[in-house]
Design a protein around this nucleic acid. Structure first.
Length: 565
DNA sequence: TTAGGGTTAG
């Protein structure tokens, strides 16, 4: 028991070596570990290594288990610096770190504790450190912590011999994720200043993150061509996205023709992203027929539309107010065996709401939820008989649960079930479908909570609008306060809605007070806010009100807006 | 490793 005594009561290398017996020492180490004295063990290991004895050789199976348990305990305590330091030392003793603790757990804790330096230091003792650097940068980005992501990026650069394209690309993506596209440009320029030619992934990420700025994206694309980096399908798809965001149908068409040409020469193969994006270009421009033409193009090219493609096609019709066509496309999607998701269902529901077909929206919603709906079809608000999805094309989930929903055996093979999970957006759309029925909208908001969803600032704005629209201005203002109390910060739309309600109820005093309140909360009014306030100017009675109106005009011009009415 | 679809105010 000499080793145990040595380890517990103090350490003298000469006595230790003289009595060295691996079995005994291992038991001794276990004993010390049991007491949680891991740093004493480290001290012993350092000393024996100095004597030319392998530290690893002193551990038997049970001692290793003890060591792993103690490491785990330190990691669980969240003491990242201690954990990383210990792992570095143990790795130096050639212990398999991966077997002691799950590497991702340590990195996870470093990320939770916002310690990018420690995360990178830890990654360095593991194999595939470069891939882990990217994971660390990405994880910080997902948290919206751009600062830590950048620190991890900078720290990782020192550990690498040359610029790593994976890390650069990831850092650019994270800038986009955190809403700082300008920063992504600096990252890219840093590569250029090192006379490094970025690869296609770096260029694609840069263009994607800056897609909202068409001229920048096009400049990046030109530069990429000048450097001889060959554009791939993703590059073109991103260019199409940039055109879509800028509303540049003409340019998008040029690109579409160009890629079609490249496809005919066998250089590229247009994919489902290409077709879906160009469909969205036309959908946004209300060119639904052009969108449908693209569907034909893709089918003849042998590319199968997916949920996103169908969604874009449906919104092409929805944006033009063509509810019937939208529903027909939805039906066609089901026929093609493509299962709609919540987003796709929301587009259709929204199409109904935009066309004031509230009843139809509710019928679809109830049917998809699979609760007590008496049929998918029936009369819409205007009183005419209307097939939502023609009676024989009904879904099985409706027909099986609802006796009045007829199923035609001819169609039952394709009318398969699809699961429908309403989201907050779904409920928001349905709240809009309540028109001016405040209590119905309020009930939907309560239902939202019971199904585990949280109303967002949009839900509250809609509720406020409905309340005001039903003639209850005071109630609407109360909702603005309630949303703040519920922890949802009122944004420019919420305030503008409240101001609108005040203006409509001729309470100009309150409208002006809300306007100054939003400014004290650092919420910048926009053109809609100004116009809403100024819309009331014909009602200004007192000199004070006219003065306030003039002040609003000045304020608006200072903010760079021009009043158009 | 990259790219696409949904909701609020005048």
């Amino acid at each position: 028991m000499i080793a145990e005594t040595v380890l517990v009561n103090g350490f003298e290398p000469s006595r230790f070596v003289a009595s060295l017996n691996v079995g005994l020492v291992s038991r001794g180490i276990s004993g010390v570990l049991r007491e949680g004295k891991i740093w004493s063990v480290v001290e012993v290991l350092r000393s024996v290594e100095k004597l030319g004895i392998s530290a690893l050789g002193l551990f038997d199976g049970s001692a290793i288990k003890m060591l792993a348990k103690e490491c785990r305990r330190i990691v669980d305590c969240g003491e990242v610096e201690e954990a990383v330091e210990l792992m570095e030392i143990l790795a130096g003793f050639r212990f398999s770190i991966k077997k002691l603790v799950e590497p991702h757990d340590v990195i996870k804790i470093c990320i939770e504790k916002c310690n990018p330096e420690m995360a990178v230091r830890y990654a360095c003792i593991l194999p595939h450190a470069q891939i882990l650097f990217c994971t660390i940068i990405h994880e910080f980005g997902k948290k919206g912590d751009l600062r830590s992501a950048l620190t991890a990026f900078e720290t990782s650069k020192h550990k690498l011999s040359g610029p790593n394209m994976y890390a650069y690309r990831m850092m650019i993506d994270v800038c986009g994720l955190c809403g700082d596209s300008v920063k992504s440009r600096y990252i890219y320029e840093e590569l250029l200043s090192q006379k490094v030619t970025p690869n296609i992934y770096v260029f694609n990420s840069l263009m994607n993150v800056n897609a909202h700025d068409l001229s920048y994206t096009l400049r990046a694309y030109k530069h990429m061509q000048n450097l001889g980096v060959i554009a791939d399908m993703a590059s073109f798809n991103i260019l199409l996205k940039a055109c879509c965001l800028a509303g540049r149908v003409d340019l998008a068409q040029d690109i579409y023709r160009e890629v079609q040409h490249l496809e005919s020469t066998g250089i590229l193969k247009l994919d489902v992203f290409t077709y879906s994006t160009i469909i969205k270009v036309f959908a946004d421009a209300k060119l639904w027929q052009m969108a449908l033409k693209i569907k034909e193009d893709m089918l003849s090219a042998g590319v199968t539309p997916n949920t996103v493609t169908w969604s874009s096609l449906i919104s092409a019709c929805a944006n033009t107010g063509l509810v019937e066509q939208a529903i027909q496309l939805f039906e066609e999607m089901l026929l093609a065996g493509c299962e709609p998701n919540s987003q796709c269902c929301n587009i259709l529901l929204h199409a109904c709401v935009e066309a004031f077909q509230y009843d139809r929206a509710f019928r679809l919603f109830q049917c998809w939820k699979g609760s007590g709906f008496q049929g998918t079809f029936g009369k819409v608000d205007n009183g005419s008989t209307d097939n939502i999805l023609h009676a024989e094309n009904t879904y099985e989930n409706c027909s099986t649960t609802m006796p009045n929903c007829r199923t035609d055996s001819h169609y039952s093979s394709y009318a398969k079930k699809f699961s429908f999970t309403p989201t907050t957006t779904t409920y928001n759309i349905m709240m809009k479908a309540c028109g001016t029925d405040y209590y119905r909208a309020k009930a939907l908001m309560d239902e939202m909570k019971t199904v585990g969803l949280s109303p967002n600032h949009i839900s509250w704005s809609i509720l406020m609008d409905i309340c005001g629209g039903s003639g209850n201005a005071e109630g609407a203002i109360q909702i603005l306060k309630t949303m703040n109390m519920a922890g949802i910060k009122a944004d420019v739309v919420a305030y503008t809605t409240a101001i609108k309600v005040c203006v409509e109820s001729k309470n100009l005093k309150l409208a002006f007070s809300l306007f100054s309140e939003m400014k004290t909360h650092q919420i910048q009014p926009n053109l809609v806010t100004y116009n809403t306030l100024l819309r009331a100017r014909t009602r200004y009675g007192s000199l004070h009100e006219v003065q306030q109106c003039l002040a609003i005009y000045q304020d608006m011009r200072k903010a760079g807006y021009v009043h158009i009415q």
